[in-house]
């Protein structure tokens, strides 16, 4: 049953993404590209670009987009609800627990051990996106020199601007898009 599958997939995404949108990204990819044939890697990469350009949490944006594609507006609602339900339960329970046992070193220890794994997860997802941008496919090709020079140039420029001036990412995204149109049209 497609609605149950959507609900369960996004329930897991909501349940296991700790630390915001970038942490949700690899989980979303895992669920909608690897486990279920709902999106291709190229479509997933499009969603990440669209999610960055539109307001709202990335996970909710992805839930809506995937839900609509797979099962229409009802699918979008089901996926979004699935994504939010774990938060509703856990956050309310945690708020209660937090007020009672503020310090709770075990909880802090567990979170401290999860954080480096999150960094690795997000790093791996970022690498997948970069490979997609530069080679147009999911995995490194046999010939690593067959990269898209324009894409590499845009990536390096965007990365440099981010490190150097720390602008709002929305401007970097818009700039990269504009640069893409200009460079690909000329070359």
């Amino acid at each position: 049953m497609i609605f149950l599958e959507l609900f369960w997939s996004f329930f897991q995404i909501g349940l296991f993404s700790i630390g915001g949108g970038y942490a949700a990204m690899p989980l979303i990819q895992n669920q909608v590209v690897d486990i279920h044939p709902w999106l291709s890697m190229a479509q997933f990469a499009d969603i990440m670009a669209i999610a960055e350009m539109t307001p709202g949490p990335i996970a909710i944006n992805a839930a809506t987009f995937v839900g609509i594609r797979v099962a229409g507006l009802a699918g979008a609602v089901v996926a979004t609800v699935g994504c939010v339900v774990p938060s509703c339960g856990i956050v309310m329970a945690l708020a209660y627990v937090y007020h009672r046992f503020r310090g709770l070193s075990v909880v802090q220890g567990i979170l401290a051990a999860m954080r480096p794994a999150m960094v690795a997860m997000i790093g791996s997802a970022g690498l997948s996106l970069l490979i997609m941008a530069v080679y147009g496919q999911r995995n490194l090709p046999d010939d690593p020199l067959s990269f898209d020079g324009v894409a590499v140039a845009i990536f390096l420029a965007a990365f440099f601007v981010l490190r150097r001036w720390k602008p709002n990412p929305i401007w970097v995204m818009a700039g990269s898009g504009a640069l893409g149109v200009i460079l690909y049209a000329i070359l």
Partner: peptide, 11 residues
Amino acid sequence: GMLCGVAAVVL
């Protein structure tokens, strides 16, 4: 182009 931007933002 934006995909390159996303990769840069994430990394």
